[in-house]
């Protein structure tokens, strides 16, 4: 991985202030960090360690324990593919293959153009619509490999268009 520029530590100051006197807030702090930066940059975690007087090992230990936390930046569009039982029974495996086939990325990877990341997630709880994926908060249900491809293509097209306008 290429070296990332240093993070803007001021983004996390309000959070550190909010939780300054509340013991047991590490997870909440990391959640706010991810919200602010999109992932947990190493230098920000070091900063949190210093400010909260917590060993960096404890912080990285918590960050790596929970599935929600990411240690690397994600693509513009995050595809969360449900791995629940109902989705498994309704062939989510084929959807996973279709996405990999379409974008050339597997679980946990990001496309080279930074447009998409794929994450296998635990049950999203929309079992009656299985198989399901969620992209940018929007749920797409009753997927077929074909439908999944179409969704991704239309998002890719929209993202590119947005970029051109910007």
């Amino acid at each position: 991985m290429s070296k990332l520029p240093p993070s803007d530590l001021s983004l996390i100051e309000p959070t550190l202030k909010t939780y300054a006197n509340t013991p047991g807030s590490l997870i909440a702090i990391l959640q706010a960090t991810q919200e602010a930066y999109g992932y947990l940059p190493m230098d920000v975690m070091e900063h949190i360690a210093q400010k909260t007087n917590t060993p960096i090992a404890t912080i990285v230990g918590v960050a790596t324990f929970y599935a929600q936390f990411r240690l690397e930046p994600v693509g513009k569009n995050l595809i969360m593919l449900c791995q629940g039982t109902a989705c498994h029974v309704n062939s989510s495996e084929l959807i996973s293959k279709a996405i990999t086939d379409e974008l050339g990325i597997e679980d946990g990877q990001t496309t080279e153009d930074g447009l998409f990341s794929l994450e296998h997630v635990a049950c999203l709880g929309c079992c009656s619509l299985s198989p399901v994926m969620m992209i940018n908060g929007q749920t797409y249900g009753r997927l077929t490999p074909d439908k999944a491809r179409k969704v991704i293509r239309s998002i890719a097209a929209a993202s590119k268009e947005g970029d051109e306008q910007a």
């Binding site: 013991p23 909440a28 990391l30 918590v62 599935a67």
Partner: peptide
């Protein structure tokens, strides 16, 4: 923050304590 084991009551308590 996404961990199945945190449904277990004592693990849940550890997680509430930020661990």
């Amino acid at each position: 923050a996404g961990a199945f084991v945190c449904g277990e009551e004592t693990a849940l308590i550890e997680s509430l304590e930020g661990k």
